[in-house]
Simulated assay, not measured.
Amino acid sequence: MGRTTTVDGRTVELPNTLGEIRAALPEERRAEFDKTVAETPLDELPRVAVLHYALPERARAEDDALMDRIQAGDLTGLVNADGTPFVP
């Protein structure tokens, strides 16, 4: 079973193996991917592979915008793991 994310309100299936992630990358990013995979500690590899390479560019842009908003103090719409509104 693969991983999914939501981009622009649509569910997107992500590549599920390092080989699939590499194949989905533009040719100009593959050498960077190979170097990163070779240098990343195993316990960090899933996070790095998904966040930096498997996510579509649009998803990364949405995540960056969300983090900017949160860091600016706007917590609108954030919820706890149980679905209740987040209150700092």
Rank of each mutant, 00 (worst) to 15 (best):
A59G: 05
A49R: 00
R22H: 05
F86H: 15
L42N: 12
V87C: 02
L42E: 15
T40V: 14
E27H: 07
V48L: 07
P56E: 09
R69K: 13
T40Y: 02
L18C: 04
A65K: 04
R22M: 04
D43H: 09
E28D: 15
R60H: 05
E27Y: 02
L75A: 14
D82M: 06
M67D: 03
G77D: 09
E20F: 08
D8C: 04
P41W: 06
E20P: 05
F33H: 13
D34E: 11
T11S: 14
F33M: 09
T11C: 07
V37Q: 05
R58W: 00
G9D: 06
E57S: 07
R60W: 02
L25M: 07
E62T: 01
E44N: 08
A81E: 05
I70A: 00
P56C: 11
E20H: 12
T76W: 02
D63F: 02
D82G: 07
R69L: 01
E27P: 03
R3I: 11
D68L: 05
M1N: 09
V37W: 00
L55Q: 00
G73D: 04
D82A: 08
R30N: 11
L66M: 10
V37F: 01
A81D: 07
A24N: 15
L18R: 06
D64R: 10
N80K: 15
M67P: 00
V7K: 11
R29D: 12
D64M: 07
A59L: 00
P85T: 12
L51C: 10
P15E: 04
R30E: 08
M67A: 04
A38E: 10
T36S: 13
T11F: 02
P46W: 08
P15W: 10
Q71D: 02
D64K: 06
P15S: 12
R22F: 03
G77M: 13
E32Q: 10
E20D: 14
L75P: 00
A31L: 11
D63R: 12
D74R: 03
H52E: 13
M67F: 01
K35H: 15
N16Y: 08
M1D: 13
A72N: 03
Y53Q: 04
T36D: 11
A72Y: 00
L18E: 10
R3S: 10
L25I: 05
G83M: 13
L18Y: 11
R22T: 01
L55I: 01
R10K: 15
A65P: 00
F33I: 08
T4R: 13
R22V: 04
V87H: 08
D8A: 15
A23N: 15
A59P: 01
A23K: 14
R47E: 09
D64H: 03
P46C: 12
E28H: 11
V50W: 06
A38L: 09
A31Q: 13
L18K: 07
E13A: 14
P88T: 05
F86K: 08
G77F: 10
P15C: 12
A54M: 05
A61V: 09
R29M: 13
P56D: 10
E28I: 01
P26K: 11
G77A: 09
E39L: 15
T4Y: 02
A24W: 06
D34N: 14
T84W: 01
P46G: 07
G19Q: 09
I70G: 00
T76Q: 09
Q71H: 04
L78E: 08
V79L: 09
